[in-house]
């Protein structure tokens, strides 16, 4: 691997990490909005909420946000297991907080 191609690769990975972190912040807002909709009697929004959690659980580790993997998994499993609304709320809020904390640490 030449030094130039390694540098290019590292630069690209840094860009992807920044993009991922920025999107995760938006995901946090989106998750809270979906949670509100869920609590207002729209159960189908759980599909989207679960999808966001699943995406974070799968990808956060490789983009340097490994601290989000477990809370994202917790939320994903909570929805899969049809847990109580209060549990889903607690785990969504916890994940959103973790995302914001991680973003703050990065900046």
């Amino acid at each position: 691997m030449s030094a130039a191609s390694l540098k290019q690769f590292q630069e690209q990975q840094a860009i992807l990490q920044r993009q991922y972190a920025a999107r995760a912040l938006k995901d946090a807002d989106q998750m809270e909005m979906l949670l509100d909709n869920f609590e207002q009697g729209q159960p189908h929004v759980l599909v989207e909420l679960r999808h966001l959690a699943h995406r974070l659980a799968g990808g956060s580790g490789v983009f340097g946000l490994g601290q989000l993997t477990q809370p994202a998994l917790d939320l994903e499993h909570s929805i899969d297991n049809c847990e109580e609304e209060t549990q889903i709320r607690a785990k969504t809020t916890a994940l959103a907080d973790h995302i914001r904390q991680a973003a703050m640490n990065k900046s």
């Binding site: 191609s5 690769f9 992807l16 999107r23 995406r55 990808g59 490789v62």
Partner: peptide, 15 residues
């Protein structure tokens, strides 16, 4: 379906 992740994998395989 995550374009950022797909790009990451693509970049890894290339490198």
């Amino acid at each position: 379906d995550d374009p950022i992740f797909a790009e990451h994998i693509s970049s890894l395989l290339r490198q």
